[in-house]
Design a binder for these strands. Structure first.
Lengths: 219, 219
DNA sequence: GCTATAATAAAACGAACGTTCAATTAATTC
DNA sequence: GAATTAATTGAACGTTCGTTTTATTATAGC
């Protein structure tokens, strides 16, 4: 009726986070009750409040750490090269890999923004904007260097991000296509979309990007 | 304390629908209470049950009619022509126009699927799949005719739909870009994405699609 | 082995939820 | 103008919600 044998704060908190991501992704933040979450962890609802002061704080923590993870992943994957094509390839590969790997967390971060208080919403949106700004910079550099052919940098960045993030809606591991194949196809589509390779070999550019993606994924 | 002067069932039901779409889009289905909805309409909560037997039935009705509207819009916009480029252009123009015009309803239909019962979810998803199938058919025809260069028809269709639907996330009427300009840019991106116009004038294809979109929007 | 503390259970809080029901009044029909 | 129907109110139902409080037990340090 109180502390249970083998109970461990760190393990419980980790279990709460994981269960929360899964439940919120499946049922939504509002639909998930603290009692339901506690039951999934194998604990009473009151125990959750040892780790997270409120339900919203729990949601915010999940979102903030997801965004930090995305930013960190890009910082380590970001190539030193100044070649816009290589940078764009790295961005696409990192984005798709990260979002497929963390499908549930991405779902939460994208769908539950309206459940945050205004200040917390602003904080998450700032992180997201910073991440998207990286893509816009790549597109702008490529357009200025003449290797991309882009009508509107902002619009193209939004279109690309929504296209890539959309992968988590339909992608299921172990089905028709592997992550490698999906990434390769999306890289090919991305390069065509930004008009990369207008130097006469447009038709073969998709194949080149595809080969590059396969190389990268094989590492 | 009972029927109010000037009360009219049809008007009240229409007001309920409109208020529900706006509230669900803003706060989410679970977060919107029937009392909140009633207050927005200027009525007591019990009055809502004259028009919708349950909260979920209300959500389902909104979603079903939205999907029917989308299908109907495409049926009237669908050109008789067999030219894949023209058909794809029409699809993109219709999709973007419809989704911008009904931003809130689209938001509801995309975000609140998990709040439907299994049978109703299946019903909505069937309508959605049928609509997406139209795009896949266009892409397949274009690929077979050699006017499109596509790696994977299914993947490309999903990428395009997510790219286009994403417009409602950031588009706000009266800001930097008009609907016409946005549509033109998306048409251009779409055509490049599917590899339309590989006959040596790739670079100018975007401009052609853009002109076509401006013509269409000017009607 | 005692003490301090970390981790949890159990019960309860008031508030809000979706929904129902009976009563009441406006509009319509004859 | 009486009877009928349409539209709505106000109060209440039982349930569930997020959260708090208090008590209880396991673990760790000395």
């Amino acid at each position: 009726m109180a502390r249970t044998t083998g109970s461990d704060g760190e393990k419980t908190e980790a279990a709460v986070r994981e269960a929360a991501v899964n439940l919120i992704a499946r049922f939504g933040y509002e639909a998930m009750s603290m009692r339901q979450l506690a039951a999934e962890v194998g604990v009473q609802a009151a125990a959750l409040y040892r780790y997270f002061p409120t339900k919203e704080e729990l949601l915010f923590t999940l979102m903030r750490e997801h965004m930090e993870g995305l930013t960190d992943a890009w910082e380590t994957a970001c190539p030193i090269s100044a070649d816009p094509v290589q940078r764009l390839s790295a961005y696409v590969e990192n984005h798709i890999a990260f979002h497929i790997e963390r499908r549930h967390a991405t779902h939460v971060s994208n769908m539950e923004l309206r459940s945050l208080s205004p200040e917390r919403l602003t904080q998450i949106l700032r992180m997201r904007t910073a991440y998207e700004k990286e893509l816009r910079a790549i597109l702008r550099d490529g357009a200025e260097a003449g290797v991309f052919s882009i009508d509107d940098t902002g619009l193209t960045a939004m279109a690309l991000i929504q296209m890539m993030t959309g992968v988590i809606v339909w992608f299921r591991p172990g089905e028709r296509l592997s992550i490698t194949e999906v990434t390769a196809t999306y890289l090919s589509m991305t390069m065509r979309l930004v008009g990369a390779g207008t130097d006469g070999e447009t038709t073969h550019d998709g194949a080149r990007a595809l080969g590059r993606a396969r190389d990268a994924a094989a590492l």
